[in-house]
Computed example of a mutant assay.
Amino acid sequence: MGTTNSKAKIIFKGLAFSEEEEVLINALFHKETHKKGTILLKAGETVDAQYYIETGCLRSFHTDAQGKEYTVQFGFKDWWISDFTAFFSKSKAILTIEVLQDATLYRISKDDKALLFTKIPKVETFFRIKLERAFAAFQKRILASLSQSATERYIRFVKTFHDIQQCLKNYHIASYLGITTESLSRIRKEISNS
C-alpha cells in the first residue's frame, strides 16, 4: 500500500489510503524547499495555493500604510499556511509570507484541492476539521487581544510557541502580540525578576 515516504503519509497522518488515492495525492501536492529569508507570497499577489509545512518556520504578516508589520500567523512543522482570506475569496493577497527558517513545504492549488475533495471525501473531512480548529484558535487569539494584558498575551504565546521561539526575532514576537519590541523587553524583564 504505497511507500512509507509518500506525500499522503507525510501530510495526512493517521489516514489510510488506497494505492490509487496515494498516487493522486502524490501527483497533486508539489514538494518545495525554501531558504530562510524567502518571500513565499507578497501582498497584492494572486493566491492560488496553500502549503503544508513539513519542516521549517514561516510567518504571515500584514504591513500597514506606515510600514508597520502585524504578524498574523506563525507556521511550523505539521501546520498549514497561506493568505486564507485571499485563497478562499479569490481576492488579492493582503498578507506576505516569509520563511524564517529553511523549510520543506507541500503546495496544493485551489483547483487541485477541490479535485481531491471530490475524489477522496475523507480528505475533505480532514480539511474541515483543520479549518474548524484554526477558526477556534483565531477566535481565541482575537479575544485574548481584546481582553488580556500584554503580559498575559506573552505568557500565552510562550506556552503555545515554546518550540519555535529560537527562530523568531523579537520584532516578530512583538508584532504578533501587538506591542513594541521595547514593551516585549520590559515584560520579559518583569517576568524574569518575579
Rank of each mutant, 00 (worst) to 15 (best):
G2C: 13
T3E: 13
T4S: 15
S6H: 03
I10E: 05
I10P: 01
I10V: 07
F12E: 10
F12C: 02
K13R: 10
G14V: 01
G14M: 03
G14A: 04
A16T: 04
S18G: 05
E20G: 05
E21W: 03
E32W: 09
H34E: 07
H34F: 11
H34K: 15
K35M: 12
T38W: 06
I39Q: 08
G44K: 08
E45W: 04
T46C: 07
V47R: 05
Q50K: 12
Y51E: 01
Y52C: 05
I53D: 07
E54G: 07
C57R: 01
T63K: 05
Q66T: 11
Q66L: 09
Y70H: 15
V72I: 14
Q73G: 01
Q73W: 08
G75P: 00
I81G: 02
S82G: 02
F84T: 07
F84P: 10
F84Y: 15
F87H: 07
F88C: 08
S89E: 13
S89I: 07
K90V: 06
I94E: 10
I94M: 11
I94V: 12
L95P: 00
D102N: 04
T104P: 04
L105H: 01
Y106I: 05
Y106Q: 06
R107E: 14
V123S: 00
F127G: 00
I129F: 14
I129D: 10
L131G: 06
L131T: 11
R133E: 14
F135L: 15
F135S: 07
F135Y: 15
F135G: 06
A137V: 09
S145M: 09
L146I: 09
I155N: 12
F161V: 02
D163L: 10
I164A: 03
C167S: 11
C167D: 07
K169G: 08
N170D: 15
N170S: 11
Y171F: 12
H172C: 09
L177K: 08
G178R: 04
I179T: 04
E182V: 14
I187H: 01
R188E: 09
K189T: 12
I191F: 11
S194R: 14
